[in-house]
């Protein structure tokens, strides 16, 4: 891996600038913005869950403007085909009249992709996107094409209208770095939204970074050191989400069918590194892990029937884990 062409101070300043630019367009939603940015800098993909009209699309669009990257949006519908996402080979005639196949790239070939209402497409189509997310490449007609860096998918789900949807299977959910809930704005935030969007001048984000800068930031973030006892704590947090683990809290034993996968631990540590840099530190702290635990683990827990019957949410389970699994006493 090459030496990152960015310093820690530049990383922090750039991230702050991106947040500031996004904040000029998106009212409130600080946590949403922070988690989305962390996912981008970690090189992962985020799953946003929230009712329509909360600014999810605007957030991705604004983020794309701030980092000056190519943005595309795919509205997932039941009749959406994989080729509609990755592209297809078309027969075209050249100037000599010869016909040949020419690849017409789909909307996946962008830096920031918004997969709107991803659960409305069929699993076949969903898997096409998820393959791209995982491999950072697409294969059409035996030809593999790399996606450009940075590549960031931001998928959305509507938690209300579940009829006619295809919920993402656990294996595919596991591929999302973070799952972020989009809360409904407060009254003050609604007033501010009204002021900003109903006037003459619509605020626009200015580009404060570019693709190579984002890639450099991703590389730098991975170099933040994490001490052994900190990494061990992340592992303990993860193990505690498994009901058969000895250190699992009672709420986990009672409500969880399967715990989080190791990707959850990787997400916590990687997010912790980015949060540390954003906080002006050069090492991962326990608090960074605890801060990242909720978005990193919530979509990786599979609750049992009892939990669903009692209305226990993954967030409550993770809160229970964080409440009982504390760092070792020095």
């Amino acid at each position: 891996m090459n030496e990152p062409s960015i310093t820690a101070e530049k990383f922090r300043d750039t991230a702050a600038a991106i947040e500031e630019q996004v904040g000029q367009v998106i009212v409130g939603q600080r946590e949403l913005v922070r988690h989305t940015l962390v996912t981008l800098l970690a090189g992962g993909n985020a799953l946003l869950e929230g009712v329509p009209g909360l600014g999810k699309t605007l957030l991705v669009r604004t983020l794309a403007q701030a980092v000056d990257c190519v943005f595309s949006r795919i509205q997932f519908t039941p009749d959406l085909m994989p080729a509609d996402i990755v592209g297809t080979n078309l027969i075209v005639e050249d100037e000599n009249g010869r016909r040949q196949f020419q690849f017409e790239s789909g909307p996946i070939f962008a830096n920031l992709v918004l997969a709107d209402e991803i659960n409305r497409a069929t699993p076949k189509t969903q898997s096409a996107l998820l393959e791209a997310m995982q491999e950072r490449s697409v294969t059409v007609a035996k030809t593999t094409r790399r996606l450009s860096e940075p590549f960031f998918v931001l998928a959305t789900q509507n938690p209300l209208e579940m009829e006619g949807t295809y919920p993402l299977p656990e294996a595919q959910l596991d591929r999302f770095f973070f799952k972020v809930d989009v809360p409904f704005p407060s009254e003050e935030e609604l007033v501010e939204i009204a002021n900003r969007t109903t006037g003459v001048a619509i605020p626009q984000a200015e580009p404060v970074a570019d693709g190579p800068t984002v890639v450099a930031m991703q590389t730098l973030a991975r170099g933040v050191p994490a001490a052994g006892h900190v990494t061990a704590y992340a592992a303990r947090l993860l193990q505690a989400t498994h009901p058969r683990d000895q250190g699992a809290p009672e709420v986990v034993r009672r409500t969880v069918r399967y715990g989080a996968s190791p990707r959850g631990m990787q997400a916590m540590i990687l997010a912790g590194k980015i949060l540390a840099l954003l906080d002006g530190r050069y090492n991962v702290a326990f608090d960074d892990l605890r801060q990242a635990a909720l978005p990193a683990l919530r979509h990786r827990l599979i609750l049992n029937f009892e939990a669903q019957a009692e209305g226990v949410t993954a967030e409550e389970v993770i809160a229970g884990v964080l409440g009982e699994v504390l760092p070792d006493e020095p």
Binding site: P225, A226, A227, G228, H229, V230, A276, D279, R281, N283, V284, A285, F286, D287, D288, P327, P330
Partner: peptide, 22 residues
């Protein structure tokens, strides 16, 4: 142990323990 205790009691975010561990 000292580093981790100081980190924990003074809220130093594992700075000392990480430096020592590395």
């Amino acid at each position: 142990r000292v580093a981790r205790r100081v980190d924990a009691e003074l809220g130093l975010k594992e700075r000392l323990a990480t430096a020592l561990a590395l």
